[in-house]
Design a protein around this nucleic acid. Structure first.
Lengths: 207, 207
DNA sequence: ACATGTGAACTGCTTCACAGCG
DNA sequence: CGCTGTGAAGCAGTTCACATGT
């Protein structure tokens, strides 16, 4: 299969969100034009994005909302439960544990890990906070699919090395660091400082 | 001036972070090759990125670490204080208020806003939580540059409409919604659900 | 008639390769 | 000689435009 661009996958995510909106409102069909308007893109872009995966629409009519939503869930790999662990039970970790969007989309948080004895043994929203020293043993037992890293930047690489060695292949990184991982491990980084600097740049250079 | 790609600005941010590392360690010069290795890119990319803004290096030698860091701060608009307000004093808002990376880079948080009477009147890490109904009046008085939106998705657009009407031109959005704003307003969206779905897709389609 | 699906054209980012300069 | 700075080439993502199917 052809390699799919990152930007395409992000748009598919967005389309799915709109479709779920439409599903709730009981609408049954939608055109590429309408999806485009909601997503800030063009109808040609929508059709091209979908065309990588098949032909889901009816000419002259548009797309069936429930069918397309189903297809997108399948494409995005959301037709299953993902087991997630969170490394770092600080403020960001706590916010993520409380975030309902995770569970809603099939991401099940197994546990959070921290090194501080203040936090270990307590729970966050019903999720146990475990000692980071148990990480390898637990990963071996629970086989999580995804690790979310919310430790300080200076500890991030060493934590990631442990996670990777333990066999996890997907990482969502909140530390403001460029992580080094082997090619079979996927990392997505969310870097708030970078986003702010992007705003700062845009603002400074606006005309 | 030529339009600068988003990807370029993000890399400039990354370069600056590495340079600050180098500065602390007292190193005085760095080559495009070394910056590239740290940033997961190529030396040609580094040089091209910088070339949009001038010629900062010495042939045969590399770049002066403090000079290049200074230039990048200037380019990114970090040579000033930015006044930031946070809309939504929930878990994410609280995590952001506590995040030290903001202040370190000249982003000064003036206040957080919320509609819940449990939160209004209290403080988060020394930052006052004010009633959202005072938003317009306060913006008029304090003239914040950037608003960070951490309200639930279903309220995000209406909050953004108020912010924009009050005159703010830069928004960092944590709500999982595609926001509609006029063309003179810059929005950066951080969408965790989208990142997770990106991981899910990558994992499902790995070979 | 209407909206999809898709090659072809286009735009723009990245990589190459080398001249230029310390 | 080494490393920068940069046109030119290459490649990838987006947009166009129209044939196709309902």
């Amino acid at each position: 299969m052809k390699r799919i661009a990152d930007s395409t996958v992000r748009r598919l995510s967005a389309y799915l969100r709109f479709l779920e909106d439409f599903e709730e409102r009981g609408l049954s069909t939608i055109s590429s034009d309408e999806l485009a308007r909601r997503g800030g893109t063009t109808s040609a872009q929508v059709r091209k994005d979908l065309s990588f995966f098949g032909s889901f629409g009816k000419r002259g009519l548009g797309y069936s909302v429930p069918e397309l939503a189903g297809r997108l869930r399948e494409i995005l790999g959301l037709g299953r439960q993902w087991k997630v662990i969170i490394i770092g039970a600080g403020k960001i970790g706590a916010a993520l544990v409380a975030y309902r969007g995770f569970r809603q989309r099939g991401f099940q948080i197994l546990a959070a890990y921290d090194s501080s004895s203040d936090k270990v043994g307590r729970t966050l929203e019903g999720i146990p906070v475990r000692d980071i020293s148990h990480l390898e043993k637990d990963v071996h037992k629970d086989l999580p699919d995804i690790a979310v890293v919310t430790v300080p930047g200076e500890n991030a690489q060493q934590v990631v090395d442990r996670i990777v060695k333990a066999g996890i292949k997907a990482i969502l990184n909140f530390a403001p660091t460029q992580l080094q991982v082997p090619p079979d491990v996927t990392v997505k980084t969310v870097n708030m400082a970078m986003e702010l600097e992007g705003l700062s740049f845009a603002f400074s250079n606006r005309d």
